[in-house]
């Protein structure tokens, strides 16, 4: 295949993945719609383990008798939605491979913001699919899909850039390790942020009296489960982020610009993100900060993370994150982080 063919394969795959994500989203919405009439307790949620969230419970629990039709339809839609998501993730992966193969010389697909965003959303979706069973994430489906779809759309509409070779400073294997770990932790933190947001929503509806027994919020797992899933995702993301930002990042920076830590805006925000997540982990063990405040901190973390990923490029022009050729020319940040 020629480079041009790879590139159009990639573009085609992005469009296809977007479509399939959209179908998966619709399917999950249909799932939740069918569940509207099924009271939460009808599922296996009545079992005494706190680990079984309402949403999946219906999909797995045969005990329900109240509205079997609705529950079965929901179970079917739930499975279909998950399969569609898996398919979309696979196609999404093809789009990344296509980007890499289209470049000459072949390379990792993160030469510009478009490619970063493509990779970032891939990891979010992939982690969701991979952790689906372990953390029973069925309840997260509509949110993750909506998020991935929106960000993909932003990438295609505003960030798209044709395939181009990497600038010199970006061709380093440290960059590969650095970016892989950064993107993985971005994925985990994003899922953690979504969970924390849902925690806040649910805790609000619980304190307000939690009237409904069906509907999305009622079917979210219990607060304690949301809190724990969020913690686990962050606990996974934090060491990876530490590795990306405080180990491989500085090593690469030292190779490329002679200074392993230069308080460059990207570095500053990576540091801020790190400190906020350290605060989150502390908050969870500090009396009075548990639960709600910790969840708010997690959301602050998600904000700093994505701000650094995209926003800071528009706020500051001193970023060195590119080798611009001329010593006095900064600011052409094609590199993200």
């Amino acid at each position: 295949m020629t480079d041009v063919q790879w590139e159009s394969l990639s573009n085609w795959a992005v469009a296809a993945a977007g479509t399939v994500y959209f179908l998966a989203l619709l399917t999950h919405l249909a799932e939740w719609a069918s569940l509207r009439k099924v009271p939460v307790a009808a599922g296996a949620a009545a079992r005494d383990s706190v680990d079984i969230p309402g949403g999946v419970a219906v999909a797995t629990g045969p005990e329900g008798t109240a509205d079997d039709g609705g529950a079965q339809r929901a179970a079917f839609f739930g499975r279909l939605g998950y399969l569609l998501t898996c398919l979309a993730v696979a196609v999404h992966f093809v789009s990344l491979v296509g980007r890499g193969m289209a470049a000459d010389p072949n390379r990792v697909p993160w030469g510009n913001m478009y490619e970063f965003t493509l990779s970032g959303t891939f990891v979010v979706a992939f982690l969701y699919v991979a952790l689906y069973r372990k953390f029973r994430l069925a309840w997260m489906a509509p949110i993750v899909l909506a998020f991935v779809l929106t960000v993909l759309m932003v990438a295609v509409l505003w960030l798209y850039a044709p395939v181009a070779p990497l600038t010199e400073a970006l061709s380093s294997y440290w960059l590969v390790i650095h970016v892989v770990s950064a993107i993985i932790s971005v994925g985990a933190f994003t899922l953690g942020g979504i969970t924390s947001a849902l925690y806040l929503v649910k805790s609000r509806s619980v304190t307000k009296g939690g009237g409904t027994t069906s509907g999305y919020v009622a079917r979210l797992p219990e607060l304690a489960v949301l809190d724990r899933v969020s913690y686990r995702l962050h606990a996974f993301g934090f060491p990876v982020w530490t590795f990306a930002v405080l180990i491989t990042g500085p090593i690469w920076a030292h190779q490329a610009w002679s200074s392993y830590w230069n308080w460059d805006p990207k570095e500053v925000w990576a540091f801020i993100t790190w400190v906020v997540y350290a605060a989150y982990l502390h908050a969870r063990t500090t009396a009075g900060w548990k639960g709600r405040n910790a969840a708010i901190l997690a959301l602050v973390g998600t904000f700093t993370l994505w701000f650094n990923f995209i926003g800071i490029n528009y706020f500051s022009t001193t970023s060195q994150h590119s080798y611009a050729g001329a010593p006095e020319v900064h600011g052409t940040v094609q590199a993200g982080d």
Binding site: V268, V275, H282, W289
Partner: peptide, 25 residues
């Protein structure tokens, strides 16, 4: 609790340096 607050302060205090140009950078 103090550690937590100091951590948050540190994050906050780092922000101006990313918006205002820095002599050392």
């Amino acid at each position: 609790r103090t550690a937590l607050i100091l951590l948050l302060l540190l994050a906050l205090a780092a922000i101006p340096g990313s918006v205002i140009p820095q002599e050392g950078v």
